[in-house]
Design a protein around this nucleic acid. Structure first.
Length: 587
RNA sequence: GGCCCCGUAGCUCAGCAGGAUAGAGCACAGGAUUCCUAAUCCUGGUGUCGCAGGUUCGAGUCCUGCCGGGGUCGCCA
């Protein structure tokens, strides 16, 4: 149960009754009526703006209308007190019994607690990672990978039908260079004396050398011949290199616990004529013309030459300038193939397209949105999530990385050092569009200053309580069926009740995070719950009466264990959403 | 020069799709910790929400302009 929806429905019912009595005009728009937790807990458990939102339509003063609504709400069993405050807010205090019953709710629902249906089964395509197959994944990719994976999981929990997709940029100049790099390294490995200058402009990484070594081991009928200079051998080299790199990338993704349902190849799209098709379509609709672009202002390239080219009328869909679709050599631009790709995703049924991009692609967003608008004609929405840079901090200093060979930190290295759970959680503790510092010392520290540890520890601690309970009260049945039937009316302590209240916001957190496409909200919520749980645990130090386990009061203990179980359930389901294994013990 | 993102406490950051007196952690200060369930705990202050207008019952949140930081700007992907 989403308690906020529940009480909004209750408010709506009261409003309907007031419409009957003529206090509200028929057909008043109640869309703006909300039911939310007040910022200040002293105002109560729930606040509604109904009177403020409807006073105008009712022709009444907000506070007068609020009084009438409050009267209706007071009749509800679940409501303990209602008061009108400020300009016309209605503060609702909910009966303890209502909160206590929520514990049973959570336990009965289990890991599915918090599942929402705002997606209504709508198909969503989340495209993320999509690193070029020219080298291994490095840390910059990890953030996008983890973010996309968590967003996808979040949308699934919120009721969307999600496809996780990786776009392989296996076509274009970069890939030709990769093929050339491979062939030349093969020659070098075979003993040919090639100076380092011979690799100028090629991919310098060790991984290309490894790939070249693997290529030399291929059976003769599959092995590209580095000396022939022929087209067939270049294609072999290219296809082998891409496949080899993608295998490594898949391994890296697996190490991170990230999975994709679909790997789409740019080359396949081009070779299947998808770009020609979309070009013809747009051209037929008058959205493509041949024109000359002005050079970028303030930064005129030296080699700028004006020339006519095929342009997409992006300006008709909100972009600043029209965008080229063909390079001077006649090849498609990246933008052209990307239009075809987005149309392909849309054609496969996704009405909502989400792309996760690195910060350096921000300027590309308006044109892609324009393109999606043009091809789907309102039938699809594109949301681009930009992930900002990650800075690695070691020994208090930023780890310098350059594109030079061997000077990038790979995903694999970081995962091997701190574990995938730490990497994943930390990557999600910041808004995606804010830069993130990843401090090796801090993220592995076993103290409350480390959010990863703090949240994991809360979960582990809840299991520890159960282990203790079995020791101290071996006769107490702490199985699921027993817990769900505990006498929850004994949970009257303020700390217990506020913990329950926090737990009941979980469905709302899911909905909000899913609607805004912001998984980091889950991380902050989990931290919050962990803090409340630790705080309540600590109260038991000074006041033994508040401890979860009361050896002489098995019934009370059972109810409290049920609450602990509910906390564990919610934390675990949040961690699982993040792809982080909930720890049952800290070592 | 155009466009995009960011600007909230000394620091790092939240701020729940416009709500009431703007929050958390760190740092800082004071106190507790023979007891106990596991990695200490409690208490406390701090803000021209970059600046200036606008929209409205109400703006950190939406709009416009400006300032500052970052990114990006045909033939890279």
């Amino acid at each position: 149960m989403n308690v906020f929806r529940h009480f909004r429905d209750e408010v709506a019912a009261v409003l309907a009754a007031l419409t009957e009595t003529g206090d509200l005009p028929a057909g008043a728009d109640i869309d703006r009526v909300t039911c939310e937790p007040p910022r200040d807990a002293s105002h109560g458990d729930m606040a509604t703006n109904a009177a403020l939102a409807l006073a105008g339509a009712a022709g009444a003063k907000p506070r007068d209308l609020a009084g009438k609504i409050a009267e209706g709400l007071r009749r509800l069993d679940s409501v303990a007190a209602v008061e009108v405050a400020g300009p016309g807010f209605i503060n609702i205090r909910i009966a303890d019994g209502f909160w206590q019953r929520r514990v049973a709710d959570i336990l009965a629902t289990g890991p599915a607690y918090g599942d929402a249906d705002i997606g209504r089964g709508e198909a969503v395509n989340v495209e993320f990672t999509s690193a070029n197959p020219t080298g291994p994944l490095h840390v910059a990719h990890a953030r996008g990978a983890v973010f996309g994976d968590a967003l996808a999981a979040l949308l699934e929990k919120a009721g969307y039908a999600v496809t996780r997709e990786y776009y392989i940029n296996d076509w274009g100049g970069q890939i030709d260079i990769l093929a050339e790099s491979l062939l030349k390294r093969m020659r070098q490995l075979r003993g040919e004396a090639l100076p380092e200058e011979a690799f100028e402009g090629l991919y310098p990484g060790q991984d290309v050398i490894d790939a070249a070594r693997a290529a030399l081991d291929l059976p003769p009928d599959e092995r590209p011949d580095p000396d022939s200079g022929g087209e067939e051998d270049r294609i072999r080299a290219r296809d082998f290199a891409v496949a080899w790199m993608m295998d490594r990338i898949r391994d890296d993704l697996a190490a991170l616990g990230v999975r994709h349902d679909v790997f789409s190849s740019e080359r396949s799209l081009v070779e299947a004529g998808a770009v020609d098709t979309v070009f013809a379509d747009l051209e037929a609709r008058g959205l493509i013309y041949t024109g000359v672009l002005d050079p970028p202002k303030g930064k005129r390239p030296d080699d700028w030459e004006e020339r006519p080219q095929s342009l997409f009328r992006a300006t008709e869909f909100g972009d600043d300038v029209d965008r080229p679709l063909k390079k001077s050599n006649g090849d498609w631009t990246y933008f052209a193939t990307d239009i075809a790709y987005h149309r392909d995703k849309w054609n496969r049924g996704a009405g909502l397209l989400i792309d996760v991009w690195g910060a350096d692609h921000q300027g590309y967003i308006p044109r892609m949105k324009a393109a999606v608008e043009a091809i789907a004609q309102g039938g699809a929405t594109l949301d681009v999530k930009v992930v900002q840079l990650v800075r690695l901090i070691r020994d208090g200093a930023v780890v310098k990385m350059s594109k030079r060979a061997g000077d990038v930190v790979t995903v694999r290295e970081v995962v091997d050092e701190v574990g995938k759970d730490v990497v994943r959680f930390v990557m999600l503790t910041r808004r995606n569009d804010a830069p993130l510092d990843f401090d090796f010392a801090r993220v592995t520290e076993q103290s409350k200053d480390n959010p990863v540890f703090y949240v994991q520890y809360a979960h582990a601690r809840s299991h520890s309580v159960f282990r203790q309970a079995r020791d101290i009260l071996p006769d107490l049945d702490t199985g699921p069926a027993s817990l769900v039937n505990a006498d929850f009316s004994t949970l009257t302590n303020e700390g217990e009740l506020s913990l329950i209240k926090k737990l009941t916001t979980w469905p709302r957190v899911i909905e909000n995070a899913a609607e805004t496409h912001e998984p980091h909200r889950i991380a902050f919520y989990l931290y919050d719950i962990a803090a409340d749980f630790h705080a309540h645990w600590n109260r038991g130090r000074d006041e033994p009466d508040l401890r979860f386990i009361r050896p002489d009061e098995p019934s009370l203990t059972l109810a409290r264990l049920a609450l602990v179980k509910a906390v564990a359930t919610v934390i675990a389901s949040g961690l699982v959403l993040f792809g982080v294994a909930p720890a049952e013990e800290m070592r």
